[in-house]
Amino acid sequence: MTVIFKEETFHDDFTFRNSPEAVKRFPFPFPEDSYMYSVNLEPHKSYRPGSVYERTFDVDEHYVSEMRDRARVLAEDPLRCQSLPHMTLAGWDLLELIMTSKAEEYPELFELHRDGTKWHWINRPLGIEQKFTFLDETTLPYGPMEYITRQTQGDFAVLDQRDDNLWMDAGMVTTQADWSLDFDIGMNFFEWHAPVPKAHEMGIFQRALKFLLNVQQGSPARRLNWTMTVYPLLDTSPENYHKWGVMKKDLTLENMGQMMHLRVELQTFFRLPRSNALVFPIRCYLIKLDELVTVPKWARRFHRVIRDLPTELATYKGFVTNRPKIVEWLSKYDDGAPTSPGIWPD
């Protein structure tokens, strides 16, 4: 498999777009024509060659540009990456998990040579070569979590497990759907989920936490979450909301196909071996509506989901004002024909 890495931006001139191959493998998140919160957790197993579920950490055509965007965001706001002092060991666990998975699953892109604690890491796409001593922080240019997540797509929350709860005690968060690591760091599972409507009353968080506390090493899990974003902005942080919020006004029926994006998060859960921490990668995939409607089943279904979504969810996800326009635009692609079950194109 050869990936050709694109030169593109997620700010200012916004040159991001998906190739037809990337559209085909997009993780469309709706198995049916309507959507409500649920405990949608399943084993993170490899299946469907070519899909985003094939590898432990998917590397796609946006890799190099996404990493450049992360470096840009961190230079503006270093608080997007934080780790409380007791989380360093979990950072090493994470570095090991990512390096070993990538070297094994993408040997043409990444190499890891290990001689006891003397490690040698080669990241070809980013042009990085690093010799370091495992578990010795002084031999890396950043802490272990920051070092490896500057080279891995997606946000990362690293959760300490204690008192039958998970605590968000470290993270790298530059591509988030409007939540703040700096505000949430140190919170437990129920506290950081506090702003979510309905799900607390539905008992979803109690059941989800129970599941997560029991995730075992070697048996990762996953789920999808989604929202919508005007312009291909990876960084829709609350910190910068006073800059990107106004961009939602630019949306019109004419530019909808290019401006409006479905934003899907592939969220995975891994138990880490030494620290017993849980790592939660949140990988963001963006797709323009013009790209999405090239798959007729997705176009029909997406129209129905957005049209019928409960107002509380549309408000929380931040597109309630633009919803009528989005539905009007999408309706052209829905002839009312039935859709097949499952998320894959027909």
Binding site: D184, I185, P195
Partner: peptide, 12 residues
Amino acid sequence: RDHYSRRIAAFQ
């Protein structure tokens, strides 16, 4: 907001 951080001892 009603969202509250104990670490900052403040609302958002």
